[in-house]
Design a protein around this nucleic acid. Sequence first.
DNA 1: CTGAAAGCGCTAACAG
DNA 2: CTGTTAGCGCTTTCAG
Lengths: 335, 335
Amino acid sequence: MPVTIKDVARESGVNVSTVSRALNGEYGVHADTREMVAAVARRLGYRPNRVARGLVTGRSHTLGLVVSDIRNHFFAEVARGAEDAACRAGHDLILCNSDLDPDKQMRYMQSLLEKRVDGILMNSVSVLSRAQQEQLAAMGVAIVLLNRTAPRGVFSTVCADNRGGGRLAAEYLLKLGHRRIAHLTGPRHHGNMTDRARGFVRALSAVPQPVEPVMIYGRNDFTGGYEMGRELLARHPEVTAVFAASDTMAFGAIRAFIEAGRRIPGDLSVIGFDDIELAAIVNPPLTTIYQPKYEIGEAAVEILLRHADRKKPHAPEHRVFDVRLVERQSCKPRD
Amino acid sequence: MPVTIKDVARESGVNVSTVSRALNGEYGVHADTREMVAAVARRLGYRPNRVARGLVTGRSHTLGLVVSDIRNHFFAEVARGAEDAACRAGHDLILCNSDLDPDKQMRYMQSLLEKRVDGILMNSVSVLSRAQQEQLAAMGVAIVLLNRTAPRGVFSTVCADNRGGGRLAAEYLLKLGHRRIAHLTGPRHHGNMTDRARGFVRALSAVPQPVEPVMIYGRNDFTGGYEMGRELLARHPEVTAVFAASDTMAFGAIRAFIEAGRRIPGDLSVIGFDDIELAAIVNPPLTTIYQPKYEIGEAAVEILLRHADRKKPHAPEHRVFDVRLVERQSCKPRD
DNA sequence: CTGAAAGCGCTAACAG
DNA sequence: CTGTTAGCGCTTTCAG
């Protein structure tokens, strides 16, 4: 049975409201009283009950983070940035893994809402319908998306310049002389990856002799990349360069290529996206598009916190981070 | 202004307590009433306030997870297992990154306590002083440790058979004929890694011609491994085999070795610990000790939940998971 | 500067 | 089966 504010009040001979004021360092309480109360509180090992406080103030100082899977390196990095920013602001972060399952995602949203979180950070499973967006918006909680789902939606968004990244990858492969190119992307309607694909395809078709890439869709993880890699070899052995929409998928694909006796980059050039730490240490080191993962998490929380003051309805903010090509050794000019 | 239980009561013409009972599916309420109330609740978009409920029931249905860094693959995997288990039981997980900093860790504990979490999962207690540990125990919240600290402490623990893993690594390297061996381990007093080191050293000395390994301490991340790798080359070039206490450190060390022109496993055999996904795909594929990360997170939450019923003080449980050697291609017999 | 009192939204006896 | 009544621990008017 923990010690409550009442205990402190009784023990220090003042009213609970005075204890509250003293401990919250507000004005209107004598310095002596404050010190005395503080001393008693310390002696008793008083620990304010934030649940009770939240009930009256209406703010839980808790944020929700809904990602598809924390084991995904990208999200781990985002989560760390988000947690650091939240911690600095005196907030906690509830972690949820949606597995890109719409039902699971909605259930988590419900749960977070019932816990009265001050805001939610999420990478949405898919392009949200107008109706879904409005439903979420109507829930009356600040939401920041980690991927652009609909152009100019009602929610704030923070993400990398995915389309620009796709373009960079395309221009790079073209510059190396590749003409038979494939793109391994994630599930359809995955906001970020869709944008990467769009930028990639568009850049490939914006040249004098346009090239149309082979598109392969799959799961955004190692195994998904592996399967897409095998599929590519089976159906399009003529391809000389592939752009994978994440480093993890790139690793999976490379594994499939190597198992099939292909050499990277000798027979096949591969470029990824994310620049996770391990991209630099696999063999061959992976050429990829860097995006600032930690900073994305940080920025998302900052926006969220700014909007969580639900005094005035903020207009949605859209923050886009620059990406850049990191040239390593998994691509080479076409012979 | 969200709709409350009162609104539902008024709208459906019954008392709030009836609404509460109806919605919580308890006995003692007419089926018709229940349905009617449920219908009204749905129509009004009623969303129970778990904060309020928590205040009266004393249970927040929230767990705290304190790890050193979620970007560490091992912890991401543990976190996922924990989150899944928590979710199944209707609980949420608050994520905290301690960076192995005792102060930060204690601050997180305070914060979690003030949020009245039902239990806390944490690693890295070993960095805490004896006094701090006792302080934790006195806090009166269920705690499960992800590493063994003091033998037979007051807390429950869940971890892999770290000592056995160290032994496995030692026996393997000895079997390959290595005699000049180094161990790259984490920070001193890191519970799990200390145990790995102990098992390793002991097994090396338990043979007819005992070998005493070169010990190098460092940070448990890629850069830490890299630095230890360089230090090893500079100070002990005679070494032919290395046991790194985590795959991540092994990767860092390998990077240092390769930069220095050493070949793996040609010049230097390397064995890791954890068996993270990427261990299988780096080149050469990393021989390592597998430990069931996801299951550790799951088991920890299960124990926590069992103990969170603070009716009766449970005796601490200690669960140890088996490890096994995964032989890949980063080790070879000494010439 | 401090105390008294009302209530945040909900559950849980206790009556009826 | 349902209504009444107390709170849970805290903040926040409103008086004094």
